[in-house]
């Protein structure tokens, strides 16, 4: 097994996630794409953990998963708030910071 087959798989997932974040207007879909990015990172961590036979890789994956769960919780709360205020979760419309 090559190390790179996992790393490239992760890189592809990461890039797809970036594409999703940049093209999606729907807030929930943006959050989903962010999950994709986080998962790509996790694959890297596990792959390097396997390469060095070090348990830390897995431990960090657990931490990332926990942080991601927290992020989804807060993120969805924000999306809900936006929806309640504007009857829409189109992030393209949330541009009050316009200069």
């Amino acid at each position: 097994m090559f190390l790179n087959q996992f790393l490239f798989f992760a890189a592809i997932l990461f890039s797809i996630g970036v594409y999703g974040v940049l093209t999606r207007k729907n807030g929930v879909l943006v959050l989903m794409s962010i999950e994709l990015i986080l998962n790509a990172v996790n694959i890297n961590l596990v792959a390097f953990g396997a390469l060095h036979q070090d348990i830390s890789g897995q431990v960090f994956v657990l931490f990332v998963i926990a942080v991601a769960a927290a992020e989804v919780g807060v993120g969805l709360a924000i999306v809900l708030l936006i929806f309640r205020n504007r009857r829409s979760i189109n992030v393209a419309e949330a541009d009050l910071l316009k200069g």
């Binding site: 940049l22 949330a94 541009d95 316009k98 200069g99």
Partner: peptide
């Protein structure tokens, strides 16, 4: 020049990536 400060999330994200 003003467009840089669009307030649009997507533009910021694009710039960041």
């Amino acid at each position: 020049l003003r467009k840089v400060q669009s307030g649009k999330i997507r533009q910021y994200a694009t710039l960041m990536f």
